[in-house]
Design a binder for these strands. Structure first.
Lengths: 195, 195
DNA sequence: GTCTATAGCCTGATAGAC
DNA sequence: GTCTATCAGGCTATAGAC
């Protein structure tokens, strides 16, 4: 039963280190040292580094699904739900300024490595994309819901990349405000209640 | 005199390989093999890998300055100049879909490595930023010229990151069109000529 | 200036004791 | 399940022949 715990520790620590230092720059020794296990123990749980990457992406997919389901439950209107998405830039700004977006930077690295896992990592974007698309659809923008979802994803990626490159915190807040204004402009005026 | 040639070959090849495969994933052996020189010869021109990175950033800064000066000369109006900037996404879309933006991906990697050269790499963004800012200023938007410049930089970064992650070419074209529409909306209406 | 040879370290991965 | 010991191979960097 201790196996399940150790395995989970490995995946969660790898998740953090892949984000903070990059996949290629993270060695088994780093993960092992951070948990307090030996490098040898590693291979009882995973046979290769790529298997760990796969487990990390799986964990992120799982966490993302839970996050989106939570937003769906917590927020009442599609507009408020989309605002939750925009707000992660503010909530995570400290880490974003240091390491960028966990999804975007992983995909960028895997693209350069021509790594097979790029497809699976892209599913993380696909989750946000289809969720946002459904919100825009519910907002009455069914014709261009997917384009609006991609546009918002694009802006969040641009903000994260530039904020990390220039280490500029104020920039995040200004662009988040612009994103919220843009979002309001996409919402059709709500008809006044008929009394 | 052959030294200058070899040195230039090293920097230009490193520039390409850092872009295509990443800084960390590019070994001296890769650069040497691509040029056709020995690994040992390397250290006659550069003492460390970081020195090569510095030279690569220097080359990119130089090329960027030349590019911006060329746009300044080729295009007549500020609006046309800014459109030149937007157009690089289309002109380089094949490579962008494979490797993302050369500036953004390098900065992302250096940020994770906590590399000292991040500051110098950020100067590449600063060049585009101040150039774009001057164009918006000339467009009559002196009050928010810098914010508009950052906004456009942000969008180009978002487009490059997402296009590379999802390997989606149509997305680049749609967003470039949206960027051009946005740009037109920022231009104050040109008063009709007084006859 | 460019080469070959090699040092010294770190990497992912394996074998086998406990 | 976890450990120690170890392997083969890759890396940056150096030394010295030509």
């Amino acid at each position: 039963m201790a196996a399940a715990l150790t395995r989970r520790q490995i995946v969660e620590t790898a998740d953090r280190l892949f984000y903070e230092n990059g996949f290629g720059a993270t060695a088994f020794a780093d993960i092992a040292a951070s948990i307090g296990i030996s490098r040898g123990n590693f291979y009882y749980h995973f046979r290769t580094k790529d298997e760990i990457l796969d487990a990390v992406i799986g964990l992120r997919l799982q966490k993302t699904e839970a996050l989106l389901a939570d937003w769906e439950k917590q927020a009442e209107t599609p507009r408020d739900r989309i605002r939750r998405f925009v707000h992660i830039l503010v909530a995570n700004r400290a880490k974003i300024m240091l390491y960028g977006c966990p999804v975007g930077t992983l995909c960028s690295e895997l693209a350069k490595l021509d790594h097979l896992a790029l497809g699976r990592a892209g599913e993380l974007f696909a989750l946000f994309r289809s969720w946002l698309s459904r919100q825009f659809d519910a907002l009455g923008r069914s014709a261009d819901a997917d384009a609006l979802a991609m546009h918002l994803l694009m802006r969040s990626q641009g903000v994260a990349t530039l904020a990390a490159a220039l280490r500029d915190e104020g920039f995040i807040e200004r662009e988040v405000q612009a994103m919220n204004l843009w979002l309001d402009a996409q919402c059709p005026a709500i008809p006044p209640p008929t009394i």
